[in-house]
């Protein structure tokens, strides 16, 4: 399943390393990545493919969310369809 990972919060070192390592360990492939820093706010958006992952989507989303809490970031994993529906005609 193609999905979008968003990481938002105050900028700090090692966020990309931490998140991509986490996804690698769970066999989630990163297809595209984009990040931006607005002031002290960090926002990263990753397109990922979860179809090879051993974990089901809901568990993966929950695990990512709790890992985010540990590093003080807000991390969400969402099916790409929600963004596609809302922003593409």
């Amino acid at each position: 399943m193609r999905a979008v990972v968003t990481v938002t919060g105050s900028d700090k070192r090692g966020i990309i390393a931490k998140v991509s390592g986490f996804l690698f360990e769970r066999n989630v492939n990163i297809e595209d990545i984009s990040q931006t820093v607005l002031g002290e706010q960090f926002a990263m958006i990753m397109m990922v493919d979860t179809s090879e992952s051993s974990l089901d989507f809901a568990t993966l989303a929950l695990d990512l969310e709790s890992m985010g809490k540990e590093i003080g970031m807000n991390i969400r994993l969402q099916h790409e369809a929600i963004f596609s529906a809302m922003h593409n005609v």
Partner: peptide, 9 residues
Amino acid sequence: MFNKFDVLE
């Protein structure tokens, strides 16, 4: 890839 502003919106 989506427009990042759309995603953040």
